[in-house]
Write a protein that binds this DNA or RNA. Structure first.
Lengths: 144, 144
DNA sequence: TATTGTTATACTCTATAACTATA
DNA sequence: TATAGTTATAGAGTATAACAATA
């Protein structure tokens, strides 16, 4: 009896999950949006982690992007030069800078997030019941 | 009635699939292997697309890596310098170069492929029957 | 003339180290 | 002294254009 995670079916499931996630559909749409707005991929990725509701310090942005602090400076410079964000001083700790979306930044970030979150067209092949079954199985595979 | 691909359940399924695919587990293991062998990520990625059974031309490698021909030259230079591949002339068309794995390259490529193909540990939570159900649903979402 | 691969070059992505200002 | 951010710089990833060899 095979008690490992590596049965035939598990292996195929894992392969298909990886293929789906790397489908060029969502990523391509996102890239088109970013290119249309004159953003490089790195800058677009940072924009995806900003929202109007949650102001973010440079350091926090480095943490979510899993990159060095100095690179955040580069990326936020790029976002600022394109009018997508502005730097605001923190109200009480003047070492900290808050990265705040401009109206143009909010518009673009919202559209990019929608592009990322939209399931590929092939998901329409699932009935509601099948989609619910799929979610149930996927929930067994990840903690949150 | 909602006939789009964007129902609640489909959206959650898509989000969880993306999260699973980006789990640091497999990618981290792969990076450790590559680093241990002194490979940069780009070179390691190319190695993953080579196999002893299927000799590959530079041009074919550019196609599967979706990169420019000239970058393949850079990457194969790196693989050759590390003793992982050698360039062989094509038997009939002398414009073409075949990228051939060395014994060391075969060993490392095999271990890297195993690391990528191994499902995350959380897959052990699925019974055989659940794994089969999952595969059935995922097959509806991708063509091949 | 078209195709395979290489060279030269340049731009983007990203990190390390040294630094400034503030706490 | 420790922390947030910036600057200077360098290395890795990747593309474009010009080119050589072969078809």
């Amino acid at each position: 009896m095979d008690v490992s995670a590596g049965s035939e079916a598990r292996g195929e499931a894992w392969r298909r999950i990886r293929e789906l996630a790397h489908t060029p559909e969502a990523l391509g749409c996102l890239r088109d949006l970013a290119e249309g707005a004159g953003l490089t991929p790195g800058i677009a990725k940072a924009l995806l982690h900003l929202s109007a509701e949650h102001p973010t310090s440079m350091r926090e942005l480095a943490a979510v992007l899993r990159c060095d602090n100095s690179y955040v400076t580069t990326v936020v410079d790029g976002l600022e030069a394109r009018g997508m964000v502005r730097r605001r001083p923190h109200p009480t700790d003047r070492r900290i800078k808050i990265v705040e979306l401009t109206d143009a930044g909010i518009t673009l970030a919202t559209r990019m997030r929608a592009a990322v979150d939209r399931p590929p067209a092939s998901f329409a092949a699932l009935s509601e019941e099948e989609a619910a079954t799929l979610v149930g199985l996927l929930r067994m595979l990840s903690a949150d």
